[in-house]
Design a protein around this nucleic acid. Structure first.
Lengths: 225, 225
DNA sequence: CTTGACATCTTACGCGCCGTAGGTTACGGT
DNA sequence: ACCGTAACCTACGGCGCGTAAGATGTCAAG
């Protein structure tokens, strides 16, 4: 939870229930994470400064570094938490479905509902590959791969004969299509959610039919005979 | 062209054919763009500094600002040029195809060939949504939309009855799937290109069948009856 | 050749922000 | 009352962005 970090109060303030600025480690961590998320969502990675976070929390710089190590550390923590909550919601929605199409449709519906409810928050995860190089890039990619892996796991029971690699490719394509559709929707919010979901569902339904059919029919069809 | 900017020479150097540091505007622009691309590809947006660029070009800071206005300006110029070259290659490869499946397959083959030939260069475009907010985010999204638009235009003749919005959704999904597949491949280069292309082709072929069928059959199928 | 306008480039600065070294203050057990 | 430790702070070095103000080469006209 804790999705509604506002972070607009610039004056230092005490955390609920603690007299002076002094607060237990875990509590401070949560407070900082909430505030950081709010600032990041509002201003983006580049516009986010640790000094702002400190001012919002009423705390000095070393405190933040003691908890997160670096600016990238804060960013990763925020993205990781958001992604985890998102994955949980989507998986819960699609769990227990009887076929692949239903699994995908329920997952997609949950996905776009989240997007609609809290667009900017999710766009923080979306923006994703912030650093093209360096440690951050790899860690963000790891987070993304975790999500994709969940899609593969959820789909696997319905395509029991698919080789792992093909299944992975499938999951990546599904996730990529969904993300891009989501990005497009964020820039064109006048489109009602039902239509977006329908486009997505139709697209995936066709693709799903392919996944199952091709793996029943035989091994990898390859491109040069 | 001009994809091989090395930018490893740290000492100031004269541009070919000009005695002193003094060089015509257009020439300087090209030199800076080439060097900047090399540095960006090598170090990523965050690790790229204008001072480094100046050192590499043997020029002082205001020169760069006179040409590009800001660090984001340089970044946008590089990404824009790469994307334009990429689009041209893909469109050329797929032009003149007789059906949608062939169009997509040829385009995809060109896409992944480029990816294979110059992974890091393309990953600069890929990384894309660097800023989640602010002007840069919008301009990068515009560049991306241009690419997607080209997919839509190339696909349109083969689905003449598709409403524009459905076609747009289709194009975004196609592009998203391709990008994500590409990202996955970059992290798993041991997979041979033929297999990636085959996965992608199969995925899109199924989806293409859907696009055509659904638009021949009638209007938007929607999700709640 | 001189003069003046223009294009190209430079030195030098202010500012914001990251990350850290070293010191200070509350808390909790004995 | 006393000491260890957990939580916190002041103060700094350094880098990198963007700009103001000035210097220097180029070229055309008188």
């Amino acid at each position: 939870m804790s999705s509604m970090a506002q972070a607009q109060d610039q004056r230092p303030r005490d955390v609920a229930g603690y007299k002076h600025g002094r607060v237990p480690r875990a509590v401070r961590y949560d407070q900082l994470l909430d505030l950081a998320e709010g600032l990041l969502v509002e201003r983006g990675y580049a516009g986010f400064s640790i000094d702002d976070l400190c001012r919002a929390a009423g705390v000095s710089r070393p405190v933040v570094y003691e908890h997160f190590g670096s600016k990238d550390g804060i960013y990763l923590a925020c993205v990781g938490r958001i992604r985890a909550e998102f994955e949980e919601a989507v998986l819960n929605a699609s769990a227990g479905s009887q076929d692949l199409a239903t699994t995908l449709e329920r997952g997609a519906d949950a996905f776009f509902s989240i997007l609609e409810r809290d667009p900017r928050r999710w766009s923080l995860v979306y923006g994703g590959a912030n650093a093209l190089v360096g440690p951050l890039a790899g860690q963000l990619a790891d987070l993304r791969d975790t999500t994709v892996q969940q899609i593969a796991v959820a789909s696997a029971p319905f395509a029991p004969h698919a080789e792992p690699e093909r299944l992975a490719a499938w999951a990546h394509a599904v996730s990529g299509a969904g993300e891009q559709l989501g990005r497009w929707w964020l820039r064109n919010p006048q489109i009602p959610r039902e239509r977006i979901v329908a486009y997505h569902r139709d697209f995936l339904t066709a693709a799903a039919r392919y996944l199952i059919a091709s793996t029943e029919a035989g091994p990898v069809p390859d491109s040069h005979g």
